[in-house]
Design a protein around this nucleic acid. Structure first.
Length: 425
RNA sequence: GGAGAGGUGGCUGAGUGGUCGAAAGCGAACGAUUCGAAAUCGUUUAAUAGGGAACUAUUCGUGGGUUCGAAUCCCACCCUCUCCGCCA
């Protein structure tokens, strides 16, 4: 959430910063509302002051005269009543304005960082570096072909259970998924992260706090009888874990790692990635999350990205690091580094982790602060996948495929998986 | 799901219509004392908005209502705890 005062007092600044995202944002409407609202606030405050003064006077008079029904008193009460009516009229207006302004401000995305490359869309993202040698042989099989031939998962049967874009992992497939989750968690814990296993269902307030609501209600599954949603990413419960808190500076940075299932409606992606493990309604993810001192979030962003990268390196998967351009940034993010893993069958890099610095955007929505020089200050939050499990599995299958149809398991994963090769059982 | 209890400041906890934003205690900060510390004494110590200060308003789970005046009364909702039932 952007600062309301900033919108009110410096709309040009806000508009310019937002327009870096390549879209026009209509700030003037919100700005007008905010200014009007402030006027109303002042008016209400003045009326309340008068009315409060009068009430006190009445109290004193009653104490003094012991007669609470004199003509003078009744006149005072009548005046008080007038105040009340007037105030309630203004308060009604206040409520309407508040609701509208809040809704609009909550729908504005974060400012892009000045360091982010300027651009309109994906095509303007900047490749920062690559790691490893991408396999470029022809006739390499896709992960879904490999997976089905090794009987690791079944898509058609899963359609029966739920619908398309759901998967059931079978035997070694399930085992590999588990191995990856444990491997990643252990790595990150060793790196100083505290593991959290949060609820998979989250309420509206939590989704608003991290930025999914009110604008993207379409992208999450909602439970019909409760104010609960299936969490689209552990980022949501992790942010909400500290909502409405003032965290002591000595505790920062707080670094969490959480495994969670993630649920996404993927509305509007019909026909895209219909095959394989790339785009599912439900997938597993190990998420990294930092709460940090606002003065340290730039470094933290480098670190969290490096922590996510370390997994890819350990698994020996070729990848590249991409600096996301202003037009392609997620709603809450000011700067994002994507890690993209090489998928030989499609001969391209695919996103496997997204590491974002949200600055105080989520902290303001969620009211998470720390004291700096005795002043309460919104802290900064960062998140990064470390990594998406399904996509990692896809990458392992494709990059580790052997001529005999088996798949070589990355060395670091062998203790977790229990075998060097993935073969037909 | 049934029955009951309860939600007050960083924490514990008092407060049932009038200087109550709220006693007391704990914790914390600062000062005195000390070579230093503990103990002791003193002072300070909620948040948000109004550009700092002064000052003002709001906030005692949330939203309404009654009243000149609500932490306190009324209504609705949410949450927590205990007991019973059911359940992995």
């Amino acid at each position: 959430m952007l600062d309301q005062k900033l919108i009110r007092e410096n709309p040009t600044f806000v508009k310019e910063n937002l327009s870096l995202r390549g879209k026009d944002y209509n700030i003037s409407h919100i700005q007008e509302l905010a200014v009007k609202k402030k006027e109303i606030d002042i008016e209400v405050s003045n009326l309340q002051y008068e009315s409060k003064k009068l009430s006190k006077l009445i109290g004193q008079e009653i104490n003094k005269s012991k007669n609470n029904n004199s003509l003078q008193l009744n006149n005072l009460k009548k005046k008080g009543n007038e105040y009340r009516i007037k105030i309630s009229e203004f308060e009604e207006k206040q409520r309407i304005f508040d609701k509208e302004i809040n809704n609009e401000i909550l729908s504005l995305p974060n400012f892009p960082s000045k360091d982010a490359p300027i651009g309109k869309d994906e095509s303007n993202n900047v490749q920062v570096k690559t790691w490893g040698e991408p396999l470029k042989e022809e006739s390499l099989k896709s992960h879904w072909e490999i997976g089905e031939s090794l009987n690791l998962f079944d898509f058609t049967k899963s359609t029966k259970i739920s619908k398309s874009r759901f998967i059931t992992l079978i035997g070694n497939g399930a085992r590999l998924e588990r191995a990856l989750i444990n491997f990643m968690l252990d790595m990150h814990i060793k790196n100083g992260y505290l593991e959290l296993m949060p609820p998979a269902l989250v309420n509206s307030e939590s989704l608003t706090g991290s930025g999914q609501l009110p604008k993207f209600s379409n992208e999450s599954f909602k439970c019909s009888n409760d104010d609960l949603w299936l969490s689209p990413t552990a980022e949501v419960p992790l942010t909400a874990f500290h909502r409405n808190e003032i965290i002591d500076k000595s505790q920062l940075p707080i670094k969490y790692v959480a495994y969670s299932p993630c649920f996404r409606r993927e509305a509007g992606s019909y026909g895209r990635d219909t095959k394989g493990l790339i785009r599912l309604h439900q997938f597993n993810k190990v998420e990294l999350y930092w709460f940090c001192d606002p003065r340290e979030s730039l470094e933290a962003h480098q670190k969290i990205t490096a922590d996510a990268e370390s997994i890819l390196k350990k698994l020996n998967l070729p990848y590249r690091l991409v600096d996301i351009c202003t037009g392609d940034l997620g709603f809450s993010s000011s700067r994002t580094f994507d890690l993209e893993v090489w998928l030989p069958s499609s001969k391209c890099y695919r996103e496997i982790s997204s590491c974002s610095n949200c600055l105080d955007f989520q902290a303001r929505r969620s009211s998470i602060r720390t004291k700096i020089d005795k002043k309460n200050t919104y802290l900064h939050t960062l998140n990064g996948s470390g990594l998406a499990i399904g996509r990692t599995m896809a990458a392992i299958l494709e990059n580790g495929q052997q001529n005999d149809g088996s798949v070589k398991i990355p060395e670091a994963l062998v203790p977790y998986f229990g075998s060097n090769y993935l073969k037909l059982a």
